[in-house]
Design a binder for these strands. Structure first.
Length: 155
DNA sequence: GCCAACGTTGGC
DNA sequence: GCCAACGTTGGC
């Protein structure tokens, strides 16, 4: 499979927002417990890939800024931590199940691009995040979609 | 807080 | 390996 260069990653801003990423500069994208999303991180994400940072479960939901993949996937140690809400008893240290990439802050949009605005764009008709029932927390995005969203965000 | 749409689990 | 029950996601 040809590796896509653009992604959308969802985060609940109450838990981890674009401002949190801005403050910490980089962050491991841990806590992903879905195999499809994990496989994107493990198999397809390369350093330098660009990411639309999406605020889910927010008012309003939408894209808040851009991040870049800064490290390829490593085992997600929160799966080994019994006290973590992401603890997974099936994941042993010598045989990790879950992986996470590191993302680095790139920019926060001047204009937050809400889900409604995304829906208004003809160019984004095929965007996965707009599709009914699409709940994956990590999704590939086309170059055209990425550019369209960045343009909206830059105002 | 509701609930539709999925994903996962576990009994058989 | 089927599928019902349960859990989660995430917009509304």
């Amino acid at each position: 499979m040809k590796s896509p260069r653009y992604w959308l990653m969802k985060s609940e801003p109450d838990v981890f927002s674009i401002d949190d990423l801005k403050a910490s500069k980089t962050s491991l994208w841990d806590g992903v417990r879905n195999y499809q999303a994990r496989n994107f991180m493990m198999n397809d994400m390369k350093v330098g890939d660009l990411v639309l940072f999406y605020h889910s479960n927010a008012k309003p939901p939408g894209v808040a800024g851009v991040a870049v993949i800064s490290k390829e996937a490593v085992p997600d140690v929160t799966a080994q931590d019994e006290k973590s809400k992401y603890y997974d008893p099936k994941a042993a240290p010598e045989k990790p199940i879950w992986f996470c990439v590191e993302v680095k802050f790139k920019s926060k949009f001047k204009n937050f691009v809400s889900l409604d605005e995304l829906r208004d764009q003809k160019a984004l008709k095929e965007m996965l995040v707009l599709k009914r029932g699409q709940r994956l927390s990590i999704q590939p995005v086309t170059a055209k979609e990425f550019d369209t969203v960045v343009k909206l965000g830059s105002g």
